[in-house]
């Protein structure tokens, strides 16, 4: 285990989630006239404010396209997660590593639920953000889903 991983592992017990709020939300309508579900482009980024508490701002931008690749809608949202810590001030690298790994376990379910709710309210097919690609791939292999049944 490297030094950074040790730092992150130590942070798991030291950081405590105080608040997780939906900070901003923006929905933009596209030019598509047909709302048949197609590709979804998802971008997920985290901005970190190293204060006390440590505030992670998780910003998600999702562009929904139809089968003809015209944009149906774009949903942008940011969630703020405030963490207090005990002990010494954590290093910047450990916090960044924490943001890549452990933070997502607590925040992504809220993002996923938000996107499913918003797409449903917009009259679209509910969109459930697929999580943890490699892990899901392992599960699919274990279940021996026939080729072609994989819908991404």
């Amino acid at each position: 285990m490297t030094d950074v991983e040790e730092d992150t592992a130590a942070l798991l017990g030291r950081l405590e989630l105080q608040a997780l709020i939906l900070d901003e939300c923006r929905v933009k309508r596209g030019r598509a006239e047909d709302a048949t579900p197609g590709d979804v482009q998802t971008d997920l980024s985290v901005a970190i404010a190293h204060g006390d508490p440590i505030v992670f701002t998780v910003r998600t931008l999702n562009a929904f396209h139809n089968q003809a690749d015209d944009m149906i809608a774009e949903i942008e949202a940011s969630f703020s997660a405030s963490y207090t810590y005990t002990g010494d001030r954590p290093t910047e690298r450990a916090v960044q590593n924490y943001a890549r790994e452990a933070l997502m376990i607590q925040v992504l379910p809220f993002v996923r639920e938000f996107l499913a709710s918003m797409t449903n309210r917009l009259g679209l097919t509910p969109f459930y953000l697929p999580l943890f690609g490699p892990a899901a791939e392992v599960l699919r292999t274990a279940q021996q889903v026939p080729p072609g049944a994989d819908r991404g």
Binding site: S45, R100, G133, A136, G152
Partner: peptide
């Protein structure tokens, strides 16, 4: 499937924004 579903790549790790 009764209706087509969204096609999206799995979300694994977020991108760290530069502040």
């Amino acid at each position: 499937p009764i209706r087509p579903e969204w096609q999206a790549k799995a979300t694994e790790k977020p991108r760290l924004a530069t502040t």
